[in-house]
Simulated scan of single mutants.
Amino acid sequence: MNGICAGRVVAVTGAGRGLGRAHALALAAEGARVVAGDLGTDPAGTGASTEPAWRTAEEIRQRGGEAVAHTGDIATDAGAASLIATALETYGRLDALVNNAGFVRDRMLVNLGEDDWDAVVRVHLKGHFLPLRHAAAHWRAETKAGRTPQARVVNTTSGAGLLGSVGQANYAAAKAGVVALTLVAAAELARYGVQVNALAPAARTRMTEGPFAEAMAPPADGGFDTMAPANVSPLVVWLASADSDGVTGQVFEAEAGRITVMEGWHPGPTTDKGERWTPAEAGRAVRALLPRMRLPGPVHGAP
């Protein structure tokens, strides 16, 4: 197949539904051979089914592309290793990894149980780290063998991770961690030909169509569906392609027809006494600095 990903092999986690499925189909349409990974859990992360991953892979094949399903748990070391092994054993190479798997268990902070914290942080943060680590080990070995790749990693963060989100402390903390992981990986893996970026999408998925049903609904008049997951995928495809050369360590937002480059933490207003502050002096200094700062966006869902 022709396209900007022709000949490349891309592993996509969470590819059975929603954004992951849209990414897998879009990558295949641009010539990628796809490993469609999905454990097949319910929206709260329980249970498992091989059907979603197999369905996406079959849909790609029916459209004339190449795809194979992976149904392991990528938040385990063995499952993550087998995802990468599936690409190498099936296609003989791996060029890009799209980390997308996840689910939510929303609770207000005072009602958030330890199990719900652990489960969400596990799938979103550990489920990014482990596939990335195994892919990076392969690409490092390739570089040491004299075959430096044009490798790409696209991580999935969220506006919740960038600004916070009421009722989603576990999810927001995990997605903020994905941003930090992206920055570290981009710096560490550049020597091995690996570029790492993150994307904060806004789209209709199992995680959003329930709590935000009205905002996520398709237009009744048949016009542009701003919340369709496929709107986000073109940027993912480009970031996974060799055409994105030189773009790494960035965080993007994508929604409808809009793409935004996010700007991270920068030092703001500062003052220096030149010696130790008293507590009262430190308080007065902070109150003088705060009016000079650039205000962040509001926390999602805050009154």
Rank of each mutant, 00 (worst) to 15 (best):
R147W: 08
R140P: 01
V232Y: 03
T226G: 11
N231Y: 02
T260N: 11
V196Y: 02
W139Y: 13
V236E: 00
F212Q: 08
P219V: 11
A190T: 09
E188M: 14
G210E: 09
G223F: 09
S244G: 15
G177M: 05
G249M: 02
G257Q: 06
A176R: 06
Y192H: 13
P211V: 09
R204P: 07
A172E: 02
S165M: 13
M207Q: 06
R258A: 11
R152Q: 07
V247N: 06
T148K: 13
V261D: 08
A200I: 04
I259E: 03
R191S: 10
G222P: 03
Y171S: 04
A173L: 14
R147T: 10
W265N: 12
A198E: 00
Q150K: 15
A202M: 12
M262H: 09
N170K: 11
P219T: 13
A200W: 01
M227T: 05
A141Q: 09
V166K: 04
V154D: 00
E255Q: 15
P267N: 04
A160R: 00
L181K: 03
P201A: 07
A213Q: 14
P267W: 08
L199Q: 01
E253M: 12
P219S: 11
W238G: 04
D245M: 11
A174Y: 00
V194S: 01
G222V: 06
A169F: 04
L239R: 04
P229S: 04
A169C: 12
V251Y: 04
T248E: 02
A242L: 09
E263F: 12
E253C: 13
M216A: 08
T182D: 02
A230Q: 07
E188A: 10
